[in-house]
Design a protein around this nucleic acid. Structure first.
Lengths: 236, 236
DNA sequence: CTTCTTCGAGAGCAGTGCTCTCACCGTTCT
DNA sequence: AGAACGGTGAGAGCACTGCTCTCGAAGAAG
């Protein structure tokens, strides 16, 4: 990783690559993943379509790059929300609320990008390996909140909860071992469930399942988030 | 709505329409909504592509028809699971489990159709009005379970739950009034949240978010479902 | 039997992803 | 400095898509 001044060629390559991604993201936000067109991107950039293939070997690869970026963007939003809440010495419960709200707001502001990552996986069938890192960021933020609460003794064993079945607990143990955090496996299980349920709440709202059902969406979401916090043991 | 024997023409039209939908559903199941091609459907049916436009005015209309059918299919699966559980005099809690399991299994068996209705909405932006009826079926099944539990006094007020904010409760009241069921609004709120969270669990599993996280998926799901039941007041 | 409507075929348009070839030009080696 | 190399964009082209239009055949209605 030398820091030498790279030639004009490499620099141009980097700039064009990001320009392509920027324009593609614009079209994605405007029209959705299905209507994203390589030729239209090229046209907008004053290039001919075949030139794009010097930068992305296929349309799916471009989409994959956008997926990675989207994961990073939600992840960053969640991390910022957590940092802000921490700097204000908010309670762990309040941090949970702040991060949840941040994710929902990001989703409402970037519906097509959210759909790209948490809706149906568009390209092949499952996301390629390269996206798993960024994909974990939001989850890690939630983990951090609960871990801190646990470390400071603020974590309550949730009431009337039968513990998860043994194989599930072992999955959770493997996960927290890999992450290097100390946390009861039972809590990790509840956390994973809560995270997926959180995304269910957001997806339902975003994809219109709440039409004619819930109009006070923000307050509904806030209420559900409080209950999810309770579920993982963050006192409400 | 006369019951006279309709001419051979109308009959043929109905048969061809369902044949088109059947072939389209085959391609949807095999390749996903993005790869569903009108021309391929026509080819497979020994027709020329322009002929399909006599039956569906556009590709999106075909997809909409498939969406409606998919909603009906999950709805039917849920209803059957409930009927089976009722006929065995299962507890309300067990009925909740059975219906949840049925929805998950339908989703695993028809991933692309599930993605079509609960993943990102593919065609325009929100589903047309015609799909709202079938879309409600699964929700109605869950409502029926909780309503029966409430009527028979088996419903427990969930522990440590702050009630939902006033506007949310009023949304819920409007909904249960429209449905004609008697149920506390607070319970309806929890039920709606639980349903969206249930779909979040299924979506995460289906779309690969649990890769390298949870391997014992079925037991994890069962555990989460039990907790959701608890959340709506169905004793576990 | 004639008229009217519906249907399928065929051609065609604009658009797509992607491949291949060819000229251009910055980089690198001699 | 000059020559070889390799990355780059343009252009043509292929196979495919959704969709429109026209036209002739065939069934329904009078």
């Amino acid at each position: 990783m030398s820091t030498k001044i790279q030639g004009a060629r490499e620099r141009a390559r980097g700039e064009i690559t990001t320009a392509i991604k920027a324009e593609a993201r614009r079209q994605l936000a405007a029209e959705g993943a299905a209507r994203l067109s390589l030729r239209a991107v090229a046209r907008e950039l004053g290039l001919v379509s075949s030139a794009l293939y010097r930068y992305f070997p296929s349309r799916d690869d471009l989409l994959t790059a956008l997926i990675t970026d989207a994961y990073d963007a939600v992840g960053a939003a969640a991390e910022e929300a957590l940092a802000a809440a921490e700097s204000m010495a908010d309670s762990h419960f309040a941090r949970w609320q702040a991060v949840s709200r941040a994710v929902r707001e990001w989703a409402l502001e970037h519906p097509h990008e959210y759909a790209l990552i948490y809706g149906s996986p568009v390209p092949g069938y499952s996301a390629p390996q390269s996206t798993t890192g960024p994909a974990a960021r939001v989850g890690l933020v939630l983990f951090a909140i609960v871990r801190d609460a646990h470390d400071s003794g603020a974590l309550r064993r949730p009431p009337r909860s039968p513990t998860a079945p043994e194989p599930v607990l072992r999955d959770a143990e493997a996960l927290i071992a890999g992450l290097g955090v100390r946390l009861p496996a039972a809590v990790a299980v509840e956390l994973i469930a809560a995270w997926s349920q959180l995304s269910g709440l957001i997806s339902f709202e975003l994809f219109g399942q709440f039409t004619n059902v819930i109009e006070a969406r923000e307050q509904f979401f806030a209420h559900a988030v409080d209950r999810l916090a309770d579920q993982v043991g963050l006192g409400g």
